[in-house]
Design a protein around this nucleic acid. Structure first.
Lengths: 152, 152
DNA sequence: GTGATCCCTCCCACCATGGGAAGGTCAAGT
DNA sequence: ACTTGACCTTCCCATGGTGGGAGGGATCAC
């Protein structure tokens, strides 16, 4: 199977498959004489595993751990459980942060009359001098989970 | 005021101030003879405005619009309200997605006995062949809001 | 005058993904 | 056999915000 078919079958784009190979998340594949990558059903299975983990918002690093555990027959389920639970914690923290943002903004939008007049509490709040420093969100490493695959 | 003081006073790092200038989110500042950037209280005010908008998860592009509206005395509050409401919608969609992820994962982690045995429903689910394609999240442009500033 | 602390610009890195160019390969149809 | 189009390869670039650091100049406090 060529990379295009593997991509189709697994739901991971060809570009991403090559990328995953380059960062050693998946091993280098067999190549044809002319250099085409060749994939087996088992490779597609792995790719599908990876895609599902991405759908659940795991980072590539976490996925790497999960793949190892998956392929390790001696694994302890508590290792997997730990990764999953850590991830749930991070997700929940993100959810709270986003909810706070949405609430604040929603409140502001509600009190904004939204007509042609220039007075606008949203702008006033943003421009105010007193510091609602919003410290609850500060310092949270946000980036690692921000993206979900924009598939198809 | 030098860039360091402006950074301190506004809560936006010096690096970011230069970046915002480079992408024309803020205008080019006056410079001293030796090339140092000089900031006024009003500039700091603008920076603080920007930082708050970032705290609320607005993208730089949206902030650019908000800054224009802020500085436009003729602005209509409905323009501001529209931006805010669009943003709330996006936030809410993200929240739902994250909640779905967290729920799925939490369910899996709960059913995983989490001991030394290798059997693990989390891994089984990820590896299963039937396709829980999680289509609800598909196609959602996730990236634009994934990051919140990692301040201090 | 000297050392510490600023500031400048420029480049690189992150993460995961897509776009595209330039060129090689393969299979199907004429 | 030849063309055509679909596929594959590698390589580079861009995204969005942010940080890190090198190499060099400016300023300030003592």
């Amino acid at each position: 199977m060529n990379i295009g078919q593997a991509a189709e079958a697994s739901g991971v784009s060809a570009k991403m498959i090559r990328y995953y190979e380059s960062i050693a998340l998946i091993p280098k594949t067999v190549r044809t004489e002319s250099g085409y990558r060749v994939y087996s059903d088992s490779d597609v299975h792995t790719l599908r595993f990876i895609r599902r983990a991405r759908d659940l918002g795991f980072s590539v690093e976490q996925i790497s751990d999960l793949v190892s555990l998956w392929q390790d027959r001696e694994r302890a389920s508590k290792d997997v459980k730990r990764i999953a639970q850590e991830h749930v914690t991070v997700l929940q923290r993100k959810i709270v942060e986003l909810q706070q943002m949405a609430e604040t903004l929603n409140h502001l939008a509600t009190t904004c009359h939204g007509d042609g007049r220039p007075d606008c509490p949203i702008i006033q709040e943003l421009a105010s001098n007193d510091a609602p420093h919003c410290s609850s969100a500060a310092g949270t490493k946000f980036g690692t989970l921000g993206k979900a695959p924009t598939r198809r």
